[in-house]
Amino acid sequence: MESVRVQLSGNRIKAYGRIVSAATDSAPAFSASYDLVTDESGATKRLSMTVTSAERERQLSIARDEENMWLVQDHTGQTSRAAFDGALDVDVVFSPFFNALPIRRTGLHQRLDSVSLPIVYVWLPDLVVAPVTIGYTGAADGIKVQSPVASATMTVDSDGFIVDYPGLAERI
């Protein structure tokens, strides 16, 4: 389950959210809270996350600087700087909300087109950060996404936010 409060100012987004996951065969139960800020174009500027499980609490901070380099401070306090293949967006596994960032930034919700984008990808609950490429294709029935964990056709609203992501979530 994900709950997110979104504040819009043009293409700029401030979002505060929480993802709650029950235990599965491959991961323990956890809660992840986040704070996201984009720039005026909708590109991610900063993401702060805290993941809490029965065993521990860990934090992650990701920020894009004026040279489009990403500064990542992981849960150990270690800081690294990387280009992540020129990525402008962050995606978080299990979150339908983060798919809206590249969709809105590229205007894909307003046109039928295809884009393949480098993305800074955050794996939960481990807070592993890695570059990935995600494909988005606008179609009459929604936006098709091809990510490291899913292939689906999402339905979006007129603002580019996810309404239905089959197999993951449906907005209520």
Rank of each mutant, 00 (worst) to 15 (best):
E2S: 04
S3V: 14
Q7C: 12
S9Y: 10
S9V: 08
G10Q: 04
N11D: 07
N11W: 06
N11K: 10
K14I: 13
R18A: 12
I19V: 05
I19D: 05
I19Q: 03
S21P: 12
D25T: 14
S26K: 15
V37Y: 14
T38K: 03
D39G: 04
D39I: 00
D39W: 00
E40I: 11
S41I: 14
A43W: 08
M49W: 05
V51C: 05
T52S: 15
A54I: 04
E57K: 08
R58E: 14
R58F: 06
R58Q: 14
R64K: 10
E66L: 09
E67F: 09
M69T: 12
W70Y: 07
D74G: 05
D74V: 01
Q78T: 10
T79N: 14
S80K: 14
A83F: 09
D85Q: 07
G86S: 03
A87H: 09
A87G: 11
F94A: 08
P96Q: 05
F97T: 05
F97W: 10
A100H: 01
L101P: 03
P102G: 07
G107M: 01
L108I: 09
S114K: 09
V115H: 00
V115K: 02
I119C: 03
V122H: 09
V122T: 11
W123R: 14
L124A: 02
D126H: 14
V128G: 12
V129M: 04
A130T: 10
V132S: 02
T133V: 10
T133C: 05
T133F: 03
G135C: 02
Y136V: 01
T137D: 08
A139V: 10
A139H: 13
G142K: 09
V145P: 07
V145F: 05
V145C: 07
S147W: 03
A152V: 12
A152Y: 13
A152K: 13
T153V: 08
M154D: 05
V156D: 06
S158I: 07
G160D: 01
F161Q: 02
P166R: 01
L168F: 06
R171D: 09
R171C: 08
